[in-house]
Computed example of a mutant assay.
Amino acid sequence: MTIINNKWGWLFITSFKGISQVIFIDNAASGFIMLIAITLASYPLGIIALISSMVGTLVAKIGGADNESINQGLFGYNSVLTGMALSLFLTGNDRWLIAAVGAAIAAIVTAAMMHFMRQTTIPILTFPFIVITWFLLLSTYRLVTFKISSALIPQSLSHWTPDIKGQINLLTGALDSMGQIFFLDYALSGILLFLAVFLAGWRWGIYAIVGTIAALLTSYFLKGEHTLISHGLYGYNAVLTMLAVSEVFKENHRYSVVTGIFAACLTIPITASIDTWLLPYGLPALTLPFVVCTWIFLAARKVMSQI
């Protein structure tokens, strides 16, 4: 019985870390708070987040991956995001099964990309999640088993006009900038996610706030669509980029904070560009702006040692 309990305890702790690693945090307590934040916004989404993290963890364990990486939750976070995205962007009763299978595939793709990028020392970040989610969503146009949500509608660029009318709720925009990392549009969830980040360290929390402010100001002065700003859709990539460049992968670079702020600001035009590029396909940008900006600055540091 003790062995069984230990196994279940290990699985839950590692799965909580898989959730927290979405924001680079290796802390089961932070992951548990994040799971509560997700569940408060959507009970089914909280379930699929936990199941997806467990699936990714178990696939890595059964597959014989490095135990240290597994225990840090590094095979869980892409599975978490993939499972959540597929459950949101697909329809039909079988989308839960598809989401779980997608979570398993995410763990395998994560392992493959770890191998391919090992020599570069550039982290894979959330790229496996992006690729798997896009591929499965696009397959719905050819494979009728997969049914895409009506919210994802391909649109023609020739008829597209940005809507910059109405007021911007900066507080809501700030909280949702954190929440949208997990596809959440709920103020209380945003507050809990900020608390989870501060639990990992006060610097983490400060950088998350700075990234949020950078995103709000940049998107406002560049006259981004007010609805997108208020719902945090310009902010979540900036938060992740700020944390990645300024804290997680800083490697004692002198100007890492300044570089992080600049990188966070850069996610805004990149997000607008990627959104426009994907408009004819009806696909969400997901975390690609964060991945692109972070890769750019981490690669640049290989040549410019002070940034």
Rank of each mutant, 00 (worst) to 15 (best):
Asn5Leu: 14
Phe12Met: 13
Phe16Trp: 10
Gly18Cys: 01
Ser20Gln: 11
Ser20Thr: 01
Phe24Ile: 05
Asp26Gly: 04
Ala29Gln: 14
Ala41Ile: 02
Tyr43Trp: 15
Tyr43Lys: 14
Ile47Arg: 13
Ile51Val: 14
Ile51Phe: 13
Ser53Glu: 02
Gly56Arg: 07
Ile62Val: 13
Ile62Pro: 05
Gln72Met: 12
Gln72Tyr: 11
Gln72Val: 10
Gly73Pro: 10
Phe75Arg: 05
Gly76Gln: 08
Tyr77Asn: 05
Tyr77Phe: 06
Gly83Asp: 04
Met84Thr: 05
Ser87Gly: 10
Ser87Asn: 14
Thr91Asn: 09
Leu97Gly: 13
Ile98Glu: 02
Ala100Leu: 11
Ala103Gln: 01
Val109Tyr: 02
His115Phe: 14
Phe116Leu: 12
Gln119Leu: 11
Leu125Ile: 08
Thr126Ser: 07
Leu137Gly: 07
Ile148Asn: 14
Ile168Pro: 09
Asn169Val: 00
Leu175Tyr: 14
Asp185Phe: 14
Asp185Ala: 13
Leu199Arg: 15
Leu199His: 15
Leu199Pro: 10
Gly201Met: 01
Ile206His: 08
Ile209Gly: 00
Ile209Lys: 04
Tyr220Asp: 03
Leu228Phe: 09
Ser230Val: 01
His231Tyr: 15
Leu233Gln: 08
Tyr236Gln: 00
Leu240Asp: 08
Val248Trp: 12
Phe249Trp: 09
Tyr255Met: 07
Ser256Val: 10
Ile261Gln: 06
Ile261Asp: 06
Phe262Glu: 06
Ala264Thr: 12
Thr271Leu: 04
Ala272Phe: 13
Ile274Gln: 09
Trp277Leu: 15
Pro284Arg: 00
Thr287Val: 00
Leu288Ile: 06
Pro289Asn: 02
Val291Glu: 08
Cys293Ala: 14
Cys293Ser: 14
Thr294His: 01
Thr294Cys: 00
Leu298Phe: 01
Ala300Glu: 02
Arg301Val: 06
Lys302Trp: 01
Met304His: 14
